[in-house]
Design a protein around this nucleic acid. Structure first.
Lengths: 377, 377
DNA sequence: TTTAATTCCGTGCACGGTAACGGAAAAATT
DNA sequence: AATTTTTCCGTTACCGTGCACGGAATTAAA
C-alpha cells in the first residue's frame, strides 16, 4: 500500500481498488435553500413585503403577514446571514462596562477577552468598546455610561459592581430595547439577556476541598487582602460562605483563622504574616478568596515550609508564576476573559442573528490549576 | 439618582447632567473600508483583474499583479467575507476521520464536537461529515477514506490510529492541496495544517500527582483494561511513562502494581480485582490511563474503603457519574469534542478566510475534575 | 503578411437581502 | 362626490465578490 494514487484495500478478503480524492469542487450540491424570493413567489407578494414581515417593520396587512409566516415555516426558510450582513452594512458597536485596573490584574485579564472573539465572522465589522470604571467609585460608572451613550451601542456588557447605578442604566437600556448581558455577577433585573459568571458559593466549597485534600485538617488560615474591608458588596462573600460550610461539614473541629491585610501597605503583609505564624506555627493551610494570592508569594518564599498548601483564585500571570514555582499549590480559575467573549458572542447572536441564548444564566466551569497542568493553560 | 432619563452625577464635586442613550443607529460611521473597486480604480484596472490577483488564478501580467498587490497593502484592503461568502455560494464539506465507537465512549464524545461548532457564522453552509472507522482494523480506515473521496471535501480532520495508512491519505491530500488537521495524536508528516491534542506524557505526570496528592504513598495500582494488550500503538503509552516518572521521582520506594483486564470479560474484572485486593489489601491508590475507569465503578462501590483514591481520564458521562457519586476521585479531561471543533475551526479559517492557525501544534488544557466542580462542566 | 494561438483584461450578471421611494387602493373626512 | 389620509405593497438601487464570457492586444506560427 503506497501513495501515488493507486490504493488497494482488502475488504472482506477481496482486494479492491479505490478511487482517488477529487480536486475539491466547492460549487456543488447547493442544497437549494429557499430564498426570500421563493416566499414572495409562493405568497404572490413581493420580496419587499416579505422583508417587512421578517423584520416586523409593520406596513403589512394581517392577511399577507400570515401568508408569509405560513410560507416561511412551510418551506423552512431561514435567512442567508451573509447576504443580510452584506446588505445591512455590518456596523454595530458593543459597549463593555467593566472595572479597569492595573495591568496583570483580574479585570485586566477579563479585558483581554474583548480582543479574542469566539467568532471571527460574527465579529467582523463590529467595534467593541471598553468603558472602564473605578470599582470603588460609584459615580465613575455613570461617567463611563455617559461616554458609552455617545457610541450608540447595539448591545451592552456589564460587570455590575453597584446595584443601584447599574439598575439605572439597565432600565434605560430596556426602554430603548438595547440588549445587555451581565458578567461576573448580576443584580436583580427583569430584562437581562444572559449572565455569565462563576458559581461563587461552589467555588469556595471547591477551594476548601482542594486545600484540605479531603482529609482532616486542624486549622486553616484565610488571608483577606482587600482595600475596603467594610464594603457592603464584597464580591467574594459567597465564596467565603462556601468555604466555611465545607470546613464545618468535613472538619467540624478545624479552626479557621482569619487575617486581614491592607494591600496598600506592603510592609503590613510581612508583619501580619510574621506575627500570625509566630503565634500559630502549626498552620499549614492557607486560602485566599480574591485574585491576589500572588502578593503572599514573597513572604511564603522567604519562609518555606514542608507540607504547606496554598490555594488561591484566578489565572493572573503573577499567580501562575507562583504556581509554577510551587509557592501556590492550586489556583481555581474562572476564565474572566471567556466570560467577556461569551457575553459578546451572546449579544451578537441576538443582534445579528436574532437568536436567543440557550440558557440565560451560564455558570462557567471552575478550572483547577496545579503546577503540573498550568503550562497548557 | 433614578431612571426616567434624568441622570445626574457628581464629578469632581460638580453635579453634571448626563445625556441618555440614543436609539441604536446601526447605519452609522460605515468606516469606509476600501473595496475591490477602490483597488481597481487606483491601479487603473478592473475588478476582474483584481479578483484574479486576490485568488491567484493567473491570467494576470506581472506588472498588474504587482500594482494590485501594492495597492492592497497601501490601502490595507481586506476582502468583505460576507460578500465573498454570498457570491461563492457557501458550500464546503469537511471530512472527519475518527474511530467510531459505542455511545458514551471516548470517540463518541469526540464526535459530539462535530455538531457544536465554535463559530456559527463560519459554519453556515458547511457540511461536516463523519467517516468512522474501526480502530482495530487498518483497512477500515481506507474504506472510510474511499467513502470520503466521494464527498470531495475541502478539508479533512484525522485522528490517526495507523501510521502508514494515514500517511497514504495525507500524501494524496497534499497532492491535491486539501488541508488536513490531526487530532488526538499525530504522525510524522510534512504538511499538516495543525494538530490539536493532549500532552500525553504530562497528563500521566499530572495523574500521578493527583493520585498521590503530592504526598508519600507506599503502593499504587494501575489497572489496564484494554482489548489488545500487545498492540504496537497503545495510545496511552506516553501517559504511563509520565506516571511512572512522577512516581519514581517523588516516591522512589512506591510499589507500582499492574493489573491487566480484558474488557470483553465482565466477570474477569470482578475476579481480577478480588484476587488483587485479597493479596494487597493495603493498596488505596488506583489509576487508569484510558477512559474506562467507569467499568471499575461497580466493583469499587461494592467494596468501599475509606481514604481510597481513584484517578481516571476523560469526561464520559459514565465517568462523571462515578465522580459525582464519589467513586472516582479525579478525572483528567482533555476535551475531545473541543479538539474536533477547534480542528474544524482551523480548517474553515484556512479555507474560507485563508488564515493560517497561530500555532501548528496545539496542546489542550488538561482539566482536573472532582465531584465539586463537575457540575458546571 | 496573414492567420492562429496565447496572454491578458474588462464587462456584466448572479448571490440573497435591505430599505428608501413612490404609488395604488382603501378608508376616513369634508 | 370630492378630497385627504392611511394602509399597504411593488419597484428598484444598492451591498462587495465571484466568475463566466468574450474580446482586445500581443506573440507565435504559417
Amino acid at each position: 500500500m503506497h501513495g501515488n494514487g493507486k490504493i488497494f484495500v482488502n475488504v472482506h478478503g477481496k482486494t479492491v481498488k479505490l478511487l482517488n480524492f477529487a480536486k475539491t469542487d466547492s460549487r456543488m450540491a447547493q442544497a437549494e435553500k429557499p430564498t426570500i424570493m421563493d416566499i414572495a413567489r409562493i405568497t404572490g407578494l413581493s420580496k419587499g413585503t416579505v422583508d417587512r414581515v421578517l423584520h416586523n417593520r409593520g406596513e403589512v396587512s394581517k392577511k399577507s403577514y400570515e401568508a408569509v409566516m405560513n410560507a416561511i415555516s412551510e418551506l423552512g426558510y431561514e435567512p442567508n446571514v451573509y447576504a443580510s450582513m452584506l446588505a445591512r452594512g455590518t456596523s454595530h458597536s458593543i459597549a463593555v462596562f467593566m472595572p479597569q485596573d492595573v495591568p496583570g490584574s483580574f479585570w485586566d485579564l477579563a479585558a483581554a477577552g474583548i480582543d479574542k472573539p469566539r467568532d471571527p465572522l460574527l465579529t467582523k465589522g463590529v467595534t467593541i468598546k471598553h468603558f472602564g470604571y473605578d470599582p470603588t467609585d460609584e459615580d465613575s460608572l455613570q461617567v463611563a455610561a455617559q461616554r458609552a451613550r455617545e457610541s450608540k451601542p447595539s448591545g451592552v456588557v456589564i460587570a455590575p459592581m453597584f446595584r443601584s447605578s447599574t439598575a439605572v442604566i439597565t432600565e434605560e437600556l430596556r426602554g430603548l430595547g438595547i440588549p445587555y448581558v451581565f458578567i461576573d455577577s448580576k443584580i436583580d433585573d427583569p430584562g437581562y439577556l444572559a449572565y455569565f459568571g462563576m458559581p461563587m458559593y461552589r467555588s469556595g466549597y471547591l477551594c476548601a476541598d482542594q486545600l484540605t485534600g479531603g482529609r482532616h485538617v486542624d486549622g486553616v488560615l484565610v488571608v483577606r487582602i482587600q482595600r475596603d474591608v467594610n464594603r457592603k458588596s464584597d464580591p467574594t462573600i459567597n465564596r467565603r460562605a462556601g468555604f466555611m460550610d465545607y470546613i464545618h461539614e468535613h472538619c467540624p473541629d478545624c479552626v479557621i483563622h482569619s487575617l486581614l491585610i491592607n494591600p496598600a501597605d506592603t510592609q503590613g503583609i510581612e508583619k501580619a504574616m510574621d506575627e500570625f505564624f509566630d503565634a500559630h506555627p502549626e498552620i499549614r493551610h492557607i486560602a485566599m478568596f480574591n485574585s491576589r494570592v500572588n502578593v503572599l508569594a514573597p513572604w511564603l518564599e522567604k519562609h518555606p515550609q514542608r507540607g504547606r498548601r496554598v490555594v488561591g483564585f484566578d489565572n493572573l500571570e503573577a499567580n501562575m508564576q507562583a504556581l509554577s514555582r510551587g509557592t501556590v499549590s492550586v489556583l481555581i480559575c474562572q476564565h474572566p476573559d471567556e466570560q467577556v467573549s461569551l457575553a459578546v458572542q451572546a449579544l451578537l447572536e441576538r443582534i445579528v442573528l436574532g437568536k436567543h441564548p440557550a440558557r440565560r444564566d451560564n455558570f462557567m466551569h471552575m478550572d483547577i490549576l496545579t503546577r503540573y497542568n498550568v503550562d497548557f493553560y
